[in-house]
Design a protein around this nucleic acid. Structure first.
Lengths: 339, 339
DNA sequence: CTGAAAGCGCTTACAG
DNA sequence: CTGAAAGCGCTTACAG
């Protein structure tokens, strides 16, 4: 069945292969009767165009590359769902490239991607550096391949379009919330590794603390549960603290567990907030107050933006920020204990 | 740079394009000197073969399709990491197909996959039915495309190779563990939806209960946290229970939360076990005893098996079962409270 | 060991 | 609106 070629269709429909090609790709250029005849034959024969021949002849692949650092991060996996749903609507296939920060460098992978002749690239690596950003710009300009940064922001320029939320604002809001509860020794628990969006969260935190004339304190942790435990234990035994904002839900939950082990009451003694609103936030006790990041939407919108770019459309906005919410739950004073 | 074609290389190296092709694909058929000359030119020109032309001429794509039901399931995301790492080693690209159980049916997606001319398919949809299995066999036989089921088993036949763990045995072992603690009213909390591997877990549970002459009780839940809460609350208020085995960690954690809300002590009053050993298991209090499924390895091995198949090698074993462990933690009596 | 040439299955100006 | 033909950039028998 997948044996049928465009020649078979042309023969059976008594037209030339050029007409078959047009009936598929430019229906308006074919007389309705012929078009229908051709389409009927296509149906009968179960004809599917050979993607390679099509790609070779047209120089288009209707394929996009998605570059991710690590699929097991919940946010990235969920973003993929949004990307895939929109990709399907616009008939794009997805080539997945996962970085295994060992053997091959990101640059090599990007070269592979170029060689694969994708029509566009979705870049989900949040640890983007200036150097990487330069390389991406080179690809965008020299190879004319559109790129969109998903849930990744590169504050210094909008030359490469991005889709995310306003993390600085979110960081500010969530900090403000703890301040409004009367907390004074509020810590931000961020990561050792330099993620761009965590940087923004920190900025928002600093702004809120500054405004309230409170001393900001940023602690950096690895993100690995086992390491965190020791780290938290030691750190907070020697520090006064009544508020904690973690850059990721799982880190916040980790902290809550350690705190409770030390007989600290949440939210009475310490108010705790996270970022993302993952399943972790709802499985923790108490439920975690956190910034609700519309991660599926970020994926979907990025893909949509990329289709526009691949279609030569110009964007009205090159740094797109979606709306976010703050989920108030039991780990802060709003006592809205969820089920 | 990506403009260079095989003609440019041939010209610069003063050989025919056939020789360039051989130098790349069958180095042993080319005299060492010429080969090196060609390779040097390739390097200089930054030549990358055009994947479409190559695919069209050779009828091979060095691409595999990975079909998943939903990327946001932690097990699937982690499996992708294993798949991608091995795919890279063997130079295969990955086309990702995520089912959005709305518009397009699985059959349509599979047809798309065939049209894309992938060399092999990794099938990660655990809700496989007999009908779907038949369709897969048709693809395997009629289109000669190798398929491997990853973390999915179809007990009735091994016509399509699979890689997983022995879920029946794992179900048996974990049940046995609760029985050995002296528990008698042990429930299995499974899903409403029919996942093949959950079926196997249930079988193992039933065997252990039967052996111990205890009455098995299987409760089915949706897997959604909010629904579970009500469900658990109602159910367990009216039933005597001292042991719970959930088919997924997150369901187990959900149960623990509800139980503690009802002043039930874990593990004293009820011993709780899960499956998978995800982050949920380590973020829960108490830490969750569970079957440790080597999910990254399942992904890696499936991909490795697929490469063998694509290489026409015959498999020694068509139903591969990797080893698993049982992580004993605080939610059962072994009191090994982890950090 | 190397080259000339056909062919893979499409798209797309160019005529008509 | 339709067809003939060139061309996309490779691979692979077939000769030599």
């Amino acid at each position: 069945m997948s044996k049928a070629t465009i020649y078979d269709v042309a023969g059976a429909a008594r037209v030339s292969l050029a007409t078959v090609s047009r009936a598929i790709n430019n229906p308006e250029k074919v007389k309705p009767e012929t078009r229908e005849r051709v389409l009927r034959v296509i149906e009968e024969l179960g004809y599917k165009p050979n993607a390679f021949a099509k790609g070779l002849a047209s120089r288009k692949s209707t394929t996009v590359a998605v570059l991710v650092p690590d699929m097991s991060r919940a946010s990235i996996a969920e973003m993929m769902n949004g990307i895939a749903d929109i990709a399907r609507v616009y008939k794009y296939s997805i080539m997945l490239y996962i970085l295994d920060n060992e053997e091959s460098t990101e640059e090599e992978v990007l070269k592979e991607i170029i060689a694969a002749q994708v029509d566009g690239i979705l870049y989900l690596n949040d640890e983007i550096t200036t150097k990487q950003h330069e390389f991406l710009k080179m690809i965008q300009n020299e190879h004319q391949i559109p790129i969109v940064l998903s849930n990744t922001v590169f504050h210094e320029s909008d030359e490469i379009p991005s889709v995310s939320i306003d993390y600085e604002k979110a960081g500010y809001e969530i900090t403000k919330k703890l301040i409004d509860e009367g907390r004074e020794n509020i810590y931000m628990v961020s990561t050792v590794r330099k993620y761009m969006v965590n940087d923004l969260k920190e900025k928002g935190y600093l702004r809120a603390m500054d405004e309230a004339r409170l001393a900001p304190q940023i602690m950096r942790t690895s993100g690995r549960i086992s390491v965190n435990t020791e780290h938290f234990n030691e750190y907070f035994r020697n520090h006064k603290v009544d508020g904690v904002i973690a850059v990721r839900d799982s880190i916040a939950v980790s902290f809550i567990n350690v705190a409770r082990m030390n007989e600290v009451r949440i939210p009475e003694d310490i108010g705790v907030c996270g970022f993302q609103n993952t399943k972790y936030a709802r499985l923790s006790r108490p439920n975690l107050t956190c910034v609700d990041v519309p991660i599926y939407d970020i994926g979907a919108v990025s893909m949509r933006v990329l289709t526009k770019l691949m279609n030569q459309e110009t964007l009205e906005e090159r740094m797109i920020m979606l709306e976010h919410d703050v989920m108030e739950r039991g780990s802060t004073k709003s006592e809205e204990q969820e089920k």
